[in-house]
Simulated scan of single mutants.
Amino acid sequence: MELTNEQWEKIQDLIPDPVKRADGRGRPAKDKRQVLEGVLWILRTGAPWKDLPARFPPYQTCHRRFQQWQEQGVMRRVVEALARDLMERGGVDLSECFIDGSFCMAKKGGLLLGKTKRGKGTKLMAVTDAAGLVLSVSIASASPHEVGLVEQTLQERFIAPMPQRLIGDRAYDSDPLDEKLREKGVELIAPHRKNRVKKKTQDGRKLRRYKKRWKVERFFAWLFNFRRTLVRHEHKAENYLAFVLLACMKIMLRYF
């Protein structure tokens, strides 16, 4: 079982029912929970669709429904609803948030791919709150520097409020980024690059918060336990992001 009964009750109203034919013909539609659990099996194992075990609906059905949900934005709506619920319960701490990026090897062509020293791939960005709860994910070509992806990642956040502080590694030490975030009410905290020539903008007291950056790294460890997110097999970038959002959903459900 990919979902407990309690977890299913939390999200079942957010998963659309299959569309019925107007003439009433055709086979009865497969139960949406069974279909979702088939998709989650693919997410967890990283296996090809055709290897879906017989205990789930046919892989063609699960793949078709996954495509429909992706096109309808179902995955993002589910994650946003869970994030809002946690925020209303007081389970989100925006006092200090953490940002990081990870490289994902790509096996097929498609958009949002870039060449790096490690090969062709996609950059996966994430922001977590003070406790490590994921607040935003976004994908981009692996070629651009992470400092140029910060604003896009914040725009993709699951809840409306902005972080009070955003903490990253040396890759995010940028005076222009610092200024842009300050205008949005966000304080950027990052260690200085060794080749920094301008005046220092951080002090030791602020950088103590940097020691807790392992929380965003832990999120990536949790995320990549879902093997379909570890390597991008999808030609469509939207499909890969949908799998990432499903993994975020599974991680968020642990907090309920």
Rank of each mutant, 00 (worst) to 15 (best):
G73E: 12
M75S: 08
R76W: 06
R76F: 00
R77W: 03
R77P: 02
V78M: 12
V78Y: 02
V78S: 05
V79K: 02
E80A: 13
E80H: 01
A81H: 11
A81S: 11
L82Y: 02
R84A: 14
D85E: 15
D85G: 03
R89L: 05
R89Y: 04
R89N: 10
D93W: 14
L94P: 01
E96H: 07
E96K: 10
C97L: 10
C97P: 08
C97V: 14
F98T: 05
D100P: 14
D100N: 09
G101L: 10
F103A: 14
F103Q: 09
F103P: 08
F103I: 10
C104H: 12
M105W: 09
A106L: 15
K108T: 11
G109R: 00
G110C: 13
L111F: 08
L112S: 02
G114Q: 10
K115G: 01
T116K: 05
T116I: 06
T116P: 06
T116C: 03
K117V: 06
R118V: 05
G119S: 06
G119L: 01
G119A: 01
G121M: 03
G121S: 12
T122K: 09
M125E: 14
M125S: 09
V127A: 08
T128P: 08
T128Y: 13
D129M: 01
A130T: 10
L133P: 09
V134W: 03
V134C: 14
L135S: 11
S136T: 04
V137L: 05
S138Q: 02
S138Y: 03
S138H: 04
S141D: 15
A142Y: 10
A142D: 08
P144L: 01
P144F: 00
V147M: 07
V147Q: 07
V147P: 15
G148H: 04
G148F: 08
V150W: 01
T153R: 07
Q155E: 12
E156M: 11
R157N: 13
R157Y: 12
R157K: 11
I159W: 07
M162N: 15
M162V: 02
M162W: 12
P163T: 15
P163E: 15
Q164T: 09
R165K: 12
R165L: 08
R165G: 04
R165C: 06
L166T: 02
L166H: 08
R170M: 04
R170N: 09
R170Q: 07
Y172K: 05
D173E: 10
D173S: 09
D173A: 01
S174D: 07
D175K: 13
L177C: 06
K180H: 05
L181Q: 07
R182P: 01
R182T: 01
E183A: 00
K184E: 14
V186C: 12
V186Y: 10
L188H: 05
L188Q: 14
A190K: 00
P191M: 04
K194A: 03
K194D: 03
R196K: 06
R196S: 06
V197E: 14
K198G: 10
T201V: 15
Q202N: 07
G204E: 12
K206W: 00
K206R: 11
L207R: 04
R208N: 13
R208L: 02
R209W: 11
